[in-house]
Computed example of a mutant assay.
Amino acid sequence: MADKGVVARLRQVAVDRVGPTEQSLIVAWGGFGATFGVTRAITHWIRAGHGPSSGGMSAGGRHLHHYNIGILLLAAVGGVALRGEERHRRHPVTATAYGSGAALIVDELALLIDLEDVYWSREGRSSVDAAIGLLALGGLYLAAVPFWHGAARELIPALGRR
């Protein structure tokens, strides 16, 4: 069980060092990572034959790629950025929509680059998966460098006392 003093100190580091911009970045990168992971899991589940018989989403018999949803999310976030009130621009839902939309597009980037449905090609998938995972973790770190450094200063001495 975590030392309540450490938890309280970490919470204070977040309050002291993570401003509104960093908070939005953390939420956006978290949304990116979570959406990418869930999307990969769902697509593997469908491909294994457990999902819809059509192989995914469709409308009027036409297959819809999830990058379409990503484009819609980014367009909505762009609209909020251009015309929304300040409280909506910095709202966690806006940041989450941005990160999620970007993840849905990046997940099908090979399709968008080649304009062919190469989603399941062995050559492209493993390198894209690794790169996106690293991008998500790196972005989460870079979005809040002061917080992570402050958290490390709080945690390292606490670990030494055990």
Rank of each mutant, 00 (worst) to 15 (best):
M1H: 12
A2V: 14
K4S: 14
V6W: 01
V6N: 02
V7H: 01
V7S: 05
A8R: 15
A8E: 09
A8S: 13
L10K: 10
R11T: 14
A14V: 13
A14E: 14
D16Y: 09
V18I: 14
V18M: 11
G19P: 08
G19H: 07
E22F: 06
S24Q: 10
L25V: 10
L25Y: 11
I26L: 13
W29R: 01
G31T: 07
F32P: 00
G33I: 02
A34N: 07
F36A: 02
F36N: 01
T39W: 05
A41T: 00
A41G: 00
A41P: 09
I42D: 06
I46F: 09
A48R: 13
G51P: 02
S53H: 09
G55I: 04
G55D: 12
G56F: 08
G56A: 05
M57D: 05
M57R: 04
G61D: 09
R62P: 00
L64P: 04
H65E: 03
Y67N: 05
Y67V: 14
L73N: 07
L74Q: 11
V77L: 06
G78R: 00
G79D: 11
L82R: 10
L82T: 08
R83D: 09
G84P: 05
G84R: 03
E86D: 06
R87W: 14
R89M: 02
R90Q: 13
V93K: 01
A95M: 03
A97W: 13
A97K: 02
Y98V: 05
G99M: 10
G101K: 06
G101E: 02
A102R: 03
A103Y: 06
L104C: 04
V106N: 00
L109I: 14
A110S: 14
L112E: 06
E116S: 12
D117C: 08
W120L: 08
S121I: 12
S121M: 01
R122H: 13
G124D: 07
G124L: 11
S127P: 00
S127C: 11
D129E: 10
A130M: 10
A131W: 15
I132R: 07
I132E: 07
L135C: 06
G138H: 02
G139Q: 07
G139I: 09
L140N: 03
L140Q: 05
A143R: 08
A144K: 05
A144V: 11
P146L: 09
P146E: 06
P146V: 10
F147L: 05
W148L: 01
G150K: 14
A152I: 10
R153D: 04
R153V: 11
R153F: 00
E154H: 11
E154I: 08
L155P: 09
P157C: 03
A158G: 13
L159E: 02
G160I: 14
R162D: 01
R162E: 00
